[in-house]
């Protein structure tokens, strides 16, 4: 409890310090370059100077934090990836050569590709279908809330939930995991699902899909509702069937939103770490890049060179989406 008190006090101190900084810096600026009460060229000169400085006062703390926590690390990671485990001696590209020769890394790349192919596609598709279905029924909002709920659950919490679903007991004894219970009920033999090489990847993906479908559903549902009703009515008059309307009229009109959902989930997949750590910690051929990177960060006291090299690979995979996002955003704010 004293610890929580400490947290709250620091928090208030932090907020007050922020408020004080903004107040004081603005007050100081107005003191140094006063315009109030003055007239003529001096006032207008001061006004010009202070309005050129003020935006930077407003942005300074945020820019500083962004620089330290996100911009600098990008460059530092690239630098470290070219150095040895301690980060002192330059080793050129040898971390990368090691990496591409390493079986575990290749396994991770393969698994990440699987994740990238499956998770965004399935989540987006299910989200779209659920959004379309729930819009037609009276209890649709309740259904949506329930499907959206896993968004609030941590990856670790979700891992426990699903580990319980996949729980395995030796054949003959009563299964308490619902999946094996169903399998045995229908006459199959129980399996330890998360240790089945290759297929276990899919059992892990289910968890992320379970979490992310709600996200896709919410965004796509809003997009579907934004479609002008008239276009659907026109299609009905033109004699299109329900499915035709969905795939030929509705989906094309929300193509942009689908792309947004897809890329958002893709980014998330590239960073997926907690689920694998909690479920298998990369055993049984389920390793992924983010977990491998974490592993090397601490393995044997920490190999910063190799860890950074893996981080750089993740970054490189993200860059195309980053560029696409920036282009979309600048087009949107271009006129403003």
């Amino acid at each position: 409890m004293p610890q929580l008190l400490f947290a709250i006090v620091t928090m208030m101190a932090g907020v007050l310090a922020c408020a004080f900084y903004f107040l004081a810096s603005n007050w100081l600026l107005d003191r140094i370059f006063p315009s109030q009460g003055l007239s003529g060229p001096k006032a207008s000169r001061n006004l010009r100077i202070s309005s050129a400085i003020r935006p930077w006062l407003f942005m300074l703390p945020a820019l500083l934090a962004l620089a330290v926590y996100l911009v600098y690390p990008v460059f530092e990671s690239v630098r470290l990836s070219l150095h040895d485990r301690s980060g002192r001696d330059f080793v050129g590209l040898s971390n990368f050569f090691w990496m591409f020769g390493d079986g575990e890394f290749r396994q991770s790349i393969f698994n990440n590709c699987l994740w990238l192919l499956v998770v965004p596609a399935v989540s987006t598709f299910l989200g779209l279908v659920i959004a379309a279905l729930t819009d037609r029924i009276w209890w649709g909002n309740i259904a949506k809330t329930l499907i959206f709920t896993p968004m609030a659950i941590s990856f670790v919490g979700a891992a426990v939930i699903w580990k319980f679903v996949y729980d395995y007991r030796a054949e003959g004894s009563e299964q308490i995991g619902i999946l094996n219970a169903l399998v045995t009920y229908f006459g199959g033999a129980p399996e330890a699902w998360i240790t089945l090489p290759f297929w276990n990847n899919f059992f892990l993906m289910v968890i992320l899909i379970w979490i992310q479908t709600g996200f896709a559903m919410v965004i796509l549902s809003a997009a579907l509702r934004g479609i002008p009703e008239e276009t659907l009515e026109a299609a009905v008059i033109d004699g299109a069937s329900g499915l035709q309307i969905f795939f030929k009229i509705m989906v094309p009109q929300i193509r942009g939103t689908i792309a947004v959902v897809w890329t958002n989930i893709t980014i998330l997949v590239l960073k997926v770490f907690d689920i694998v750590l909690a479920m298998t910690n990369g055993q049984w051929q389920t390793q992924v890049l983010a977990n491998l990177m974490f592993d090397w960060m601490f393995r044997g006291g920490g190999d910063f060179g190799r860890g950074a090299a893996i981080a750089v690979v993740i970054m490189v995979l993200v860059v195309p989406i980053m560029i696409w996002n920036i282009r979309n955003a600048t087009r949107e704010t271009g006129g403003h």
Binding site: L63, L270, M293, A308, N325
Partner: peptide
């Protein structure tokens, strides 16, 4: 600056871990 913020939106956390740990 707006473009930079949009870009930073997707920078993977993994990039930051090692440099920040060192820092």
């Amino acid at each position: 600056l707006i473009a930079v913020v949009v870009g930073l939106l997707v920078v993977p956390l993994q990039m930051s871990l090692i440099p920040l740990l060192k820092l």
